[in-house]
Simulated scan of single mutants.
Amino acid sequence: MSDTFADSRTMIGRSLRLTSRNAEALTMSLMLPIMLMLVFVYLFGGAINTGTTYVTYVTPGIILLCAGFGASMTAVSVSKDMTGGIIDRFRSRDISGAAILAGHVAASVARNLASTVLVFGVAFLIGFRPAAGLVDWLAALGILLAFILAISWLSAAAGLLAKTPEGANGFTFVVMFVPYASSAFVPVDTMPSWIRGFAENQPITPVIESIRGLLLDTPVGSTPWVALAWCGGILVVSIVASAALFKRRTS
């Protein structure tokens, strides 16, 4: 058990170093939140009626959109490891697959927490004023962390499933599309009926509604539990799938 923890710490350090050395990807993951926030608030916000200032409404959606993009980079990193020969070296030193994947997931969480801080910083500068107390803030951050962890493990599974890093990169487009078909940028009840059902019953919407409600101190009902159930389900399925796919790829 101690060897597993030691290996995990080593792999986490490796993944964080690789992230810091990939200047292009790191810059994009940190600058994308700022660019998206400014584009949506200043270019689109004036035309969208949400019942409140648009920056207040859209901030949780921007956070989750950027979290999805940051996590999707994990798929590419895992795929590069699987196709680059480094896995054979790790396995020759008896490093477990769980430790290797945990390193990639930890780096994803770190990237996304950094982008979250940037989103909140820019949002505060341009008018975001949450009404949350300490408990609500902690609850919102807990739900966000659960989502980031789940989507990061899902990305790791996608990287193991893809045959090439280029194929794994396609996961980025899927993850970045789903938030648009949710309550991230416009209220769901303004959507056509044929897409409203999907928007109301996919995992992004309860996560966003929970974070938005907690930060704005509005009633959330059972929505946070629905969000956590989605995150927990995705996390469990992704970890099991990752273990099976890693075993298949390295057997």
Rank of each mutant, 00 (worst) to 15 (best):
N201K: 07
M191C: 01
R9Q: 11
V236K: 10
G142W: 01
S251P: 06
A139Y: 06
W137R: 00
G133A: 03
S79N: 11
M31S: 04
L64T: 08
T52I: 04
D88T: 03
S8F: 07
L65F: 11
S77Q: 12
A75W: 01
T205V: 02
M176G: 03
S193Q: 13
S15E: 04
S72A: 14
T223A: 03
R21D: 10
P33K: 00
V135S: 15
I204D: 11
D94W: 13
I151W: 06
A25I: 12
A114W: 00
S193E: 14
L32F: 12
T27P: 02
A229V: 05
E200P: 01
A241K: 12
R89I: 11
T116K: 01
L16C: 02
F173D: 14
G61N: 09
F124C: 02
G232I: 09
V237I: 14
T4G: 13
S108V: 06
S115H: 11
W137I: 04
S15A: 15
G121M: 04
I63N: 05
P130H: 10
L235G: 07
A241E: 08
A199V: 10
L26H: 09
P219M: 01
S8A: 12
F124P: 07
G197K: 15
I195R: 11
I204Q: 04
G221A: 14
P130Y: 09
G133D: 10
F120P: 04
T250N: 14
T83R: 02
W225F: 15
T53D: 14
G127I: 15
G159T: 02
I86G: 07
S8I: 07
D217H: 09
V119R: 02
L118D: 13
A132T: 08
V105R: 00
L18M: 13
S77T: 13
F124S: 05
R196M: 14
G46D: 14
L228Q: 01
E200C: 04
N112I: 06
V41A: 10
V174G: 07
I12D: 03
I34Y: 09
K80A: 02
